[in-house]
Write a protein that binds this DNA or RNA. Structure first.
Lengths: 220, 220
DNA sequence: ATCAAAAATGAGTGATTACTCACTCTTATT
DNA sequence: AATAAGAGTGAGTAATCACTCATTTTTGAT
């Protein structure tokens, strides 16, 4: 279950880090598997070492503590999950050439993009989802990225889609909340809560887009 | 933070159980606090005993294992969270006398009702939210209650609100998914993810209702 | 081939874990 | 007052925990 692509892993952890030794990569892969299977607190360093095919001491050569290992795995995922689809390049593709397009287009692009990300990184996101409640470093990183990267860009973007009526009467935070919880609700349901159900993904995505679009349209 | 009302606790655990001794009540209260603060796996029975003002052995008089304690706390919450607002009495209040009313009314009633429940039981629901991923007993109970109690009643109810067009074209599972994830998204955001934000609850609830109603209406 | 630095090892550490059990205390019934 | 049963106790147990460190192995530049 959930074999980890080595290149993908490297890309995830390489954000600003130096390279990992082969054994270090093994350790990180094993840690991701076990953390997501039984949770951080219930995972033991001895089991991680065993599954990585490595002496337990090797873990502590590279990571001062077990929690250090968790943090080094989990923090880069937050950036990778939140930031890229708000990068300039991504936005330009939406507003290419002609007039800016409908909210449909934007939502569809975002959802398909994040769908792929979640599909490839389910284990990592399960860890993140679980541990964010207990580790303030994770919460702080979330807050920082949301406030500095996501909120301002998304706000600008939404203003393009909304009428003057809507902009005056509906608080932007509410629109964020409803949009994000619908999209995350879809992704979590699809990949974490009931992944074994026989979903018709294209159809579900299309319904989700229409639900958000009409839901927001009806608020004013 | 999160002091536990003793009567409320009794009511929760009394579903079909015998009474608890005073010390047992203390144990359950302490366990709820500590489980929700640090998670089940990171909570130690010695700390629970200490906070309950009880010898550690007393815990194991009443519960065979630490996990037994968790399960005895968490399973009744699932029923209490899911079932009551679908009880006959509750539904009768909505369809009282005249014609059946709008979807608005139903959603408003459900949301306010569950809002109060979540407000009073935040710690319990945080435990449930965390541990459902690791304990199959919890998942099974969820599935059972959803399939036997919630889905069939909610299906009947929704059929009252939807036109023939909608009933034929939109799968009911999709409507469930969108509705539930929007409502849970609101409650989780409000009470667990960002409880310290200065929410205007009445306004948010009203927006949430309109969002769902118009979102579904637009699907056909 | 030499050798210094980095990587890896695994036996060993004290602390903590969930759980046991022989025993005492409390309570209610007679 | 006697007694039986359940509630409560807390010292004790083996297992496991995260982490250390003296030592060995691997690596890469010369």
């Amino acid at each position: 279950m959930g074999q980890l692509d080595k290149e993908l892993l490297q890309e995830l952890l390489d954000v600003s880090e130096k390279e990992l030794t082969p054994k270090q990569t093994k350790i990180v892969q094993a840690a991701i598997e076990i953390f997501s299977e039984k949770g951080f607190a219930a995972a033991s360093t001895s089991e991680i070492a065993k599954r990585a095919g490595v002496a337990e001491g090797t873990i502590f050569r590279h990571y001062k503590t077990k929690k250090d290992l968790l943090i080094s795995i989990v923090l880069p995922v937050i950036s990778k999950f939140a930031v890229p689809f708000l990068a300039e390049q991504f936005l330009n593709e939406i507003f290419e050439g002609e007039e800016f397009e409908e909210m449909d287009q934007f939502l569809r692009k975002v959802i398909y993009n994040r769908y792929e990300f979640v599909r490839k990184n389910t284990a990592l996101l399960k860890i993140l989802l679980q541990e964010m409640f207990y580790h303030s470093e994770i919460q702080d990183t979330f807050k920082e990225i949301y406030m500095e990267k996501i909120a301002p860009k998304y706000r600008n973007l939404m203003e393009q889609f909304l009428t003057k009526d809507q902009l005056e009467s509906i608080p932007m935070e509410t629109i964020f909340r409803l949009t994000i919880s619908t999209v995350l609700g879809f992704l979590l349901t699809r990949f974490i809560i009931v992944p074994d159900y026989d979903w018709d993904d294209e159809r579900e995505i299309e319904y989700t887009i229409q639900f958000i679009k009409n839901g927001i349209k009806g608020l004013s």
